[in-house]
């Protein structure tokens, strides 16, 4: 468990390293009682076994796959096509694509990354057809809002030697904050809404990186983004979610 009051750069460095070594927390297989699984990536051996069972037509293996990724796929599809029913269609097509491609899948990426690539491509195509898709490769990727600060400027001093330093410090959150939020229906509904409130391009990057734990390289390849642009989008998305959580934790804002 993290300690309260870590204060020296050295301690932060150590903590940083620990965080970067630890793969992001994966999603649960089945919603267990706590709704949480211990951190760590899925072992490759587990995935190979699952793949083999799928190819052999094992229904339990397929059900496991659906339980594991269906909700994630819906969430991701919705980042491309706003309409829930269209997103559901896209995910149906995705599962068909998965079945069609299963025999050709060579395991050069993880099964999860492969499935997410399929949904992304299908959702993109669908989004273009519905002409609401945000195309990253156009100049619109990092538009005028790129220069917008991610923290409300009024939180910083405006003059003197300490201009651009905090006017008043942010409030520390309890150590158990992440658990506290996701363990309640209200908290996870709030977080889900905060994600849905993000513009499409920020949402796509945030879901793939922070919710699903894909690497920066994988996400850049999937969305045809440069690493630098991807980081700008991710940072803006995270900053907005942080602000939303701050409103939840400190200002008593609740899900609509």
């Amino acid at each position: 468990m993290r300690q309260v009051g870590v204060s020296t750069p050295d301690q932060f460095e150590a903590y940083e390293l620990e965080l970067s070594r630890r793969a992001p927390v994966p999603k649960t297989d089945y919603p267990n009682k706590a709704g949480i699984e211990p951190p760590g990536r899925r072992p490759a051996a587990e995935e190979l076994l699952l793949l083999e069972r799928l190819r052999n037509g094992d229904e339990a293996a397929f059900t496991l796959l659906v339980e594991r990724y269906h909700a994630s796929l819906i969430r991701l599809a919705q980042a491309h096509v706003s309409d829930r029913s269209v997103a559901e269609e896209v995910v149906q097509e995705t599962w068909m694509g998965v079945l069609e491609g299963l025999d050709r899948f060579e395991g050069r990426s993880s099964l999860k990354t492969w499935i997410f690539r399929i949904v992304t491509n299908k959702a993109k195509t669908r989004g273009v057809r519905e002409s609401r898709h945000v195309c990253f490769s156009s100049t619109g990727a990092l538009d005028e809002e790129a220069e917008e600060p991610t923290v409300d400027p009024s939180r910083f001093r405006t003059s003197g030697h300490w201009a651009d330093y905090w006017a008043s410090y942010p409030q520390p959150w309890d150590e158990g904050t992440p658990e506290k939020i996701v363990l309640t229906k209200e908290g996870s509904a709030y977080l889900e809404q905060a994600i849905q409130a993000l513009p499409s391009n920020l949402r796509q990057v945030l879901i793939l990186r922070d919710v699903e734990g894909l690497s920066s390289k994988e996400v850049c390849a999937m969305l045809q983004l440069s690493e630098a642009n991807q980081r700008v989008l991710l940072h803006r998305a995270r900053s907005r979610v942080r602000r939303a959580l701050e409103q939840y934790l400190e200002e008593g804002i609740r899900p609509a």
Binding site: V25, K27, G35, H70, P170, Q171, D210, R238, S239
Partner: peptide, 18 residues
């Protein structure tokens, strides 16, 4: 404090239940 809030945010996102 702000950096820890950002880390908490990232951790919370990684635990979002389906």
């Amino acid at each position: 404090v702000y950096l820890r809030q950002m880390k908490h945010t990232i951790e919370t996102l990684g635990r979002l239940p389906d």
